[in-house]
């Protein structure tokens, strides 16, 4: 028996199995297969739990790993069948640099993007939420704005302080550049006293986030889909003129 002959029975087996299951389906249900849904032109990026950066968190934590998301964002940008992206957020925040990396990636996508904040988009979730072309927040959702913090061992306090100060400046710059909130207002919310018991910062609820210009509109899935389809339409019109 040659190698070719040896391979043949293996290759035929799955075909035969497929055929027999097909025959069974026709006999039992009178149909060959359930029609499959067409490929969606809108893809969804969900950012849930903690944004995980350099440190791997224990398995009981619900995390979103940025090394998983960044290739997905590149794939969305590259795939011509994908016309728009929805970013779903329900996060408590997490690694600042990982969050900023995600925000910059989403902001630099050429395709229309829309974000929805559901439940919470706290801390580093704020720049991610504003990084899209249009942002929505559920009326009950909240966003905590607070200064950057650091846990763990610190070597070289003055240097680390300066580094953190610069990092905070980067977050403020990103948010003010990608949303309608004024820098003074954002800083005021960030350093406000009395809103979070014995802590500085503000917990902004859905309608207030829109009022301050941080988020574009109140809405959920329906509004987000409508807006995204509108942006996709505009995007295609623009291409045709070119």
């Amino acid at each position: 028996m040659t190698d070719k002959d040896k391979q043949n029975p293996d290759q035929q087996n799955p075909d035969q199995q497929n055929q027999s299951s097909l025959v069974q389906k026709i006999q039992q249900l009178g149909q060959s297969s359930v029609p499959t849904a067409p490929d969606s032109n809108i893809h969804i990026l969900s950012i849930i739990g903690q944004v995980e950066g350099h440190v791997q968190l224990p398995p009981q934590n619900k995390t979103t790993k940025y090394e998983h998301l960044i290739p997905q964002i590149v794939a969305v940008e590259q795939n011509p069948k994908i016309e728009g992206l929805i970013v779903l957020l329900n996060t408590v925040g997490g690694d600042v640099e990982a969050g900023l990396a995600l925000s910059e990636m989403i902001a630099s996508i050429s395709k229309p993007t829309v974000s929805i904040v559901l439940g919470g988009g706290h801390s580093i979730g704020v720049p991610i939420a504003v990084s899209t072309n249009h942002s929505f927040i559920a009326p009950t959702a909240t966003m905590t704005i607070h200064p950057i913090r650091l846990t763990g061992l610190v070597i070289g306090v003055p240097q680390t302080f300066e580094y953190l100060d610069k990092m905070q400046e980067r977050v403020i710059q990103f948010v003010t550049k990608h949303s309608n909130i004024k820098e003074e207002k954002f800083k005021e919310l960030m350093f406000e006293k009395g809103n979070l018991t014995r802590d500085i910062g503000t917990n902004v609820v859905g309608t207030d986030a829109v009022k301050y210009g941080l988020i574009d509109a109140i809405g959920g899935v329906k509004e987000a889909m409508e807006k995204l389809n509108e942006l996709i339409g505009q995007n295609q019109d623009g291409k045709m003129i070119q």
Partner: peptide, 20 residues
């Protein structure tokens, strides 16, 4: 995936952007 026993895994989360 999370391993339950040798060769058997439980799905914890699907990481995909495709809603389908």
């Amino acid at each position: 995936l999370e391993q339950i026993e040798e060769g058997s895994y439980r799905v914890v989360q699907l990481l995909s952007t495709n809603p389908q």
